[in-house]
Simulated assay, not measured.
Amino acid sequence: MGSLNNLKAMVLRNNSGELPSALKNCTNLFLLDVAQNLLSGPIPSWIGDKLQQLTVLSLSENHFSGNISMHLCYLEQIEVLDLSRNNLSNGIPTCIKNFSAISQRSINITEIRSRIYAYPSDYIETYGNDFSLGMYILNITLMWKGVDSWFKHPELISLTGIDLSGNHLTGEIPKEIGYLAGLHSLNLSRNNLNGEIPSDIGNLTSLDFLDLSRNELCGRIPTSLSQIDGMGVLDLSNNNLSGRIPSGGHMDTFGASFFEGNPNLCGQQLNKTCPEDMTPAKPQQPASHDSDFYEGLYMCLGFGFFTGFWGLLGPLLFWRAWGIAYIRFLNKVTDYI
């Protein structure tokens, strides 16, 4: 196989064995699909080092383990990357921002066609200028929006997607995901990702499918998600998200099932009132035994003052003999002083 230098597409599914390193000589490959095999070990670094013309790479449903190879970031032309249902671990590399083809908001299909259907000089010498012989159509199956779907080339080259679901990935979703402005489908479900959903994910204005379910994501759902008008599917279920679900745009069209499994989420989608929307009840003062004591004390003081004041002043005012005696007493005291 390594001698097939002009090989453009290879689809080898439902087999077993090893991925021959001689394939690194097939530098003109634009499609490599070796899904549903028993391939194991780390993802070969030569895929990114040597096969830099790849537009579609599917390694799904194998037993690849270890990190997502940093060498895959050399695939600047990649548009569909499917590494789902393997045993990959650790974090998502931040160098995914190097996927320049996905970073463009619109795909130059003419340029991709010319790259895929570029014919070597010996082909022209053999077959002449009749290029219709080489306009082949591929029927391939890829995981798209969480479902195995059939695609015919060149329909496939108008789509962009990354599927890393069903692995053991950890760490946070890198904010560099926001560079992939032309991405149509992103599936990171069924991993062990944690931290908050980066607000930069709102830059993916072309996104039609986003599945972050069954992880350990926390914090609030970024409001920037509501700004993606073309979002058709959004699944954030079974995480540790909290706060109010953003409203507006397509966010109001998603049912409760796409947010369930997050006990601290609230909003109209879940028909659950947020704490800040509730009218605060007036706190009840606990009954105190001291209040009864002070109430009795004040009553006794008032009664004692009334009795003492009028008990002395009353006779002086109303009994003349007492009033004269009191005045004489004051005169004597004054004279003495």
Score class of each variant (00 low, 15 high):
Ser3Glu: 10
Leu4Arg: 03
Asn5Tyr: 12
Leu12Met: 10
Arg13Leu: 15
Arg13Asn: 13
Gly17Lys: 03
Gly17Cys: 05
Ala22Glu: 12
Leu23Arg: 04
Lys24Asn: 04
Asp33Ala: 02
Leu39Val: 05
Leu51Met: 10
Gln53Gly: 09
Thr55Tyr: 13
His63Met: 03
Ser65Pro: 00
His71Ile: 00
Glu76Pro: 00
Gln77Cys: 05
Asn87Trp: 13
Leu88His: 06
Ser89Ile: 11
Gly91His: 12
Ile92Glu: 08
Pro93Gly: 07
Pro93Gln: 06
Thr94Gln: 14
Ile96Asn: 03
Ile96Thr: 02
Asn108Tyr: 10
Tyr117Ser: 11
Tyr119Ala: 11
Pro120Ile: 01
Glu125Ile: 03
Tyr127Phe: 15
Phe131Arg: 13
Leu133Ala: 06
Met135Thr: 09
Ile137Gly: 01
Leu138Gly: 02
Asn139Ile: 04
Ile140Ala: 12
Leu142Asn: 01
Trp144Ile: 14
Lys145Glu: 15
Gly146Phe: 12
Val147Gly: 00
Asp148Met: 09
Leu156Cys: 01
Ile157Leu: 13
Ser158Ile: 06
Leu159Met: 14
Ile162Asp: 13
Leu164Glu: 04
Glu172Asn: 13
Ile177Cys: 00
Ala181Cys: 01
Ala181Arg: 15
Leu183Asp: 03
Asn187Phe: 04
Asn187Ser: 11
Leu188Gln: 08
Ser189Gly: 05
Asn192Pro: 00
Glu196Ala: 15
Glu196Arg: 04
Asn215Cys: 13
Glu216Trp: 01
Arg220Leu: 06
Leu225Ser: 05
Leu234Ala: 05
Leu241Gln: 04
Gly243Ala: 10
Ile245Ser: 09
Pro246Met: 04
Gly248Trp: 07
Gly249Asp: 07
Ser257Trp: 02
Phe258Met: 14
Phe259Lys: 11
Gly261Phe: 09
Leu265Ile: 08
Gly267Arg: 05
Gln268Leu: 08
Cys274Phe: 03
Pro280Tyr: 02
Lys282Cys: 00
Ser288Val: 01
Glu295Leu: 12
Gly296Lys: 14
Leu297Trp: 05
Leu297Lys: 00
Thr307Lys: 10
Gly308Thr: 14
Gly308Tyr: 07
Phe309Met: 13
Gly311Lys: 10
Pro315Arg: 01
Trp319Thr: 12
Val333Arg: 15
Asp335His: 05
